[in-house]
């Protein structure tokens, strides 16, 4: 059993609970034990970094230190959390003076200093390796029955590659590998790694909805039955705000959007009630019908 400090991120814990619930059901099936981080904060989602960069760094290193105390690496299910935690980790690992300054602050408030020994990985990265794929195969997946899936990476699991580094940000293939391994068909399209617009969806809604339009319309035109994303923020932009994007852009997408663990869960036969598709704004009935769930 591979143990991880589980960092689901705020969106999966609150507004997108279906992602958290599915991940928790899926993990033991894949030999993963998720250990909670009860004192971990929000990663700041780029907003704290944009307001107070040093505070962002210190808060994220505090989370890494908690995982270090538990003796395990961090597993995430959100692009934005992954990028923020990895960026902070890189900043302190590359510069001992920065680590020292951050640790001084942590010690002052009674928090544990960080030694810089832990890594942060995303569930997609863990599974899209030979080892991960063999764990999926060991489950004898009933498969996706040829479901045509549009992979949607979003931004912050790919870029900046100097921080992320799992795969070529211009030619990512991890989602495609998983989709195929699960018996699905890939609907390829250019905008799979363009921005969903979510970071500015409240402050600049029109701009954000024009951004999500690009991937939604292209995935529709590629004949996808659904889209899959490794990020709950992208999911909110593509699913919760999809009707608004349709209205603004004068078109219809009718594109169901699945969280990555839900797609895997469908292939592995997890009960649909556990995966809470009813919480999606865009109905997923056609997806469940094709897969036979």
């Amino acid at each position: 059993m591979q143990q991880f400090a589980y960092y689901p991120g705020c969106v999966a814990e609150f507004s997108s609970k279906e992602l958290n619930a599915t991940t928790k059901t899926l993990a033991p099936m894949l030999d993963i034990e998720l250990l909670p981080l009860p004192a971990a904060t929000c990663c700041g989602a780029g907003d704290i970094a944009e307001a107070k960069p040093n505070l962002y760094l210190t808060l994220n290193v505090r989370i890494l230190s908690q995982a270090e105390e538990m003796g395990v690496d961090v597993l995430t299910i959100c692009n934005v959390c992954t990028m923020n935690l990895r960026r902070a980790n890189k900043m302190v690992k590359e510069d001992p003076r920065v680590l020292e300054q951050v640790n001084e602050e942590l010690v002052k408030v009674g928090a544990r200093p960080y030694e810089g020994t832990k890594e942060v990985t995303h569930l997609l990265w863990y599974l899209a390796t030979e080892e991960g794929l063999s764990k999926l195969e060991a489950q004898g997946p009933r498969g996706l029955n040829g479901l045509k899936v549009a992979p949607y990476y979003g931004c912050q699991l790919l870029r900046p590659s100097s921080v992320m580094g799992f795969e070529d940000p211009d030619q990512p293939q991890s989602l495609e590998r998983l989709i195929r391994a699960l018996g699905g068909e890939v609907a390829d399209y250019e905008a799979k790694s363009k921005c969903c617009g979510f970071p500015i969806i409240l402050a600049r809604q029109e701009v954000a909805l024009k951004e999500s339009h690009v991937a939604l319309s292209q995935s529709r035109d590629a004949g996808a039955d659904c889209m899959v994303t490794p990020c709950p923020l992208c999911h909110l932009a593509m699913d919760a705000y999809q009707r608004k994007a349709e209205s603004l852009n004068g078109t219809e997408y009718n594109m169901p959007v699945l969280h990555l663990p839900q797609l895997i869960g469908l292939a592995l036969g997890i009960e649909t009630s556990v995966m809470q598709f009813k919480r999606h704004m865009v109905p997923t009935d056609n997806v469940l019908e094709i897969v036979g769930a």
């Binding site: 870029r159 900046p160 100097s162 940000p169 921005c195 970071p199 701009v207 951004e211």
Partner: peptide, 10 residues
């Protein structure tokens, strides 16, 4: 207005 797509850094 920056949507943090990170293409510029890349």
């Amino acid at each position: 207005d920056c949507t943090r797509c990170m293409y510029c850094n890349e």
